[in-house]
């Protein structure tokens, strides 16, 4: 009687609570710029992981070249700013370049699925990395490109840690909401259809290739946005941003957190960023610990941290309820009265 109502309330309250927590996070962190910066990094990688999740989770296409798209946006911003363009023009240019590159990536990679798709995206990513590394006349090689300053949209400077955090939070929430809309839309359903039953989808008259292509563009768009956040956060971009290890790291975030869920990639991004940046200050062999965490996740929660925790929590609840002695009795009493 009360339960359905409370469930609705909790369904609305949970996201609101999370937003409130995130919005007040700098306060919780004592306005400490270092920890606020770590939070910004988690948000920016979460956007990148959400972007990749469109392909890996909902389209069933595992890409190992997404860091290249992110880096391409970063490099375009750096180069356009160097050429004397303003921030807005540079940002729009970067998104346009990333979308164009995503289209090229998609046309080439979508000739195949599965391992073939993975290998083609890997090769394309390596080409971008190679250009960043070797075409020193354009990209300044492994010395990278520096940005003089962060932008100041509407006169609000993003130079400070908290100003940047709130910008990253706003963009992150936009990414999250757009992902939810995408996943719940008819397009999202058809995308999941192309993942699970591509031949049936074709038989039903869906253009499987086009659906995947559009998903790739959506993924590329948000990767580009993550790239903007990346380059403005670091004010520097160099070839390692486009490297295979960076692509693999984003993929690890998606898989460890839980592909095809909205919250999984965010949890994955948080784990990787925290291990890399915070735990490494205390544990010298931090990548060993990160490896052990991934092995534990894969062993006990092969579906990922978020869905795995939900499953384990449910199982624990069922187990507990079956063994709570008073519980059954109270229910019967309530019913009698």
């Amino acid at each position: 009687m009360i339960r359905p109502a409370s469930r609705i309330a909790s369904a609305a309250a949970a996201p609101a609570l999370v937003v409130v927590l995130l919005a007040t996070l700098p306060v919780w962190l004592g306005h400490h710029p270092y920890y606020v910066n770590i939070a910004s990094q988690i948000l920016l990688w979460a956007v990148a992981a959400l972007a990749l999740n469109v392909l890996v989770g909902y389209a069933g296409l595992v890409s190992l070249g997404h860091a290249a798209l992110l880096a391409m946006a970063g490099y375009t911003v750096g180069l356009l700013l160097q050429a004397g363009y303003g921030h807005l023009a540079a940002d729009l240019g970067a998104i346009a370049v990333t979308l164009a590159a995503s289209a090229v990536f998609a046309v080439l990679a979508l000739r195949s699925t599965g391992v073939g798709f993975l290998m083609i995206t890997l090769a394309l990513g390596q080409i971008v990395w190679g250009i960043a590394y070797r075409w020193a006349g354009l990209t300044n090689g492994d010395n990278g490109i520096s940005l003089a300053a962060r932008p100041a949209p509407f006169g609000l400077s993003l130079a400070g840690a908290e100003a940047f955090y709130y910008t990253a939070l706003l963009i992150f929430l936009m990414a999250l909401v757009s992902m939810r809309i995408l996943v719940r839309s008819p397009f999202g359903a058809s995308l999941a259809g192309t993942r699970d039953q591509p031949r049936r989808m074709t038989a039903l008259g869906f253009n499987v290739w086009l659906i995947r292509f559009l998903a790739f563009l959506a993924s590329g768009f948000w990767s580009g946005v993550a790239g903007l956040l990346y380059v403005y956060y670091h004010q520097f971009i160099a070839p390692p941003a486009a490297a295979l290890t960076a692509s693999a790291e984003i993929l690890l975030m998606v898989i460890s957190g839980g592909a095809a869920t909205l919250l999984g990639p965010i949890a994955g991004a948080a784990i990787v960023v925290i291990m890399k940046n915070v735990a490494s200050a205390y544990i010298e062999r931090w990548n060993l610990v990160l490896g052990v965490i991934f092995i534990l996740i894969i062993s006990f929660m092969p579906e990922g941290l978020v869905p795995g925790s939900v499953r384990l929590a449910r199982a624990a609840w069922v187990w507990l309820r079956a063994r709570l002695p008073g519980r059954e009795g109270r229910y019967t009493q309530e019913r009698i009265s």
């Binding site: 400490h32 710029p33 270092y34 920890y35 910066n37 770590i38 990094q41 990278g144 840690a161 670091h234 520097f236 160099a238 390692p240 941003a241 890399k276 940046n277 490494s280 200050a281 010298e284 931090w286």
Partner: peptide
């Protein structure tokens, strides 16, 4: 002592750690 991992992004984060924190 901070370990940058030998890459630019790591160096940047660790520089923030020693300067800001």
């Amino acid at each position: 002592i901070a370990d940058t991992g030998g890459n630019p992004a790591g160096a940047r984060t660790k520089a923030q750690e020693v300067i800001e924190r």
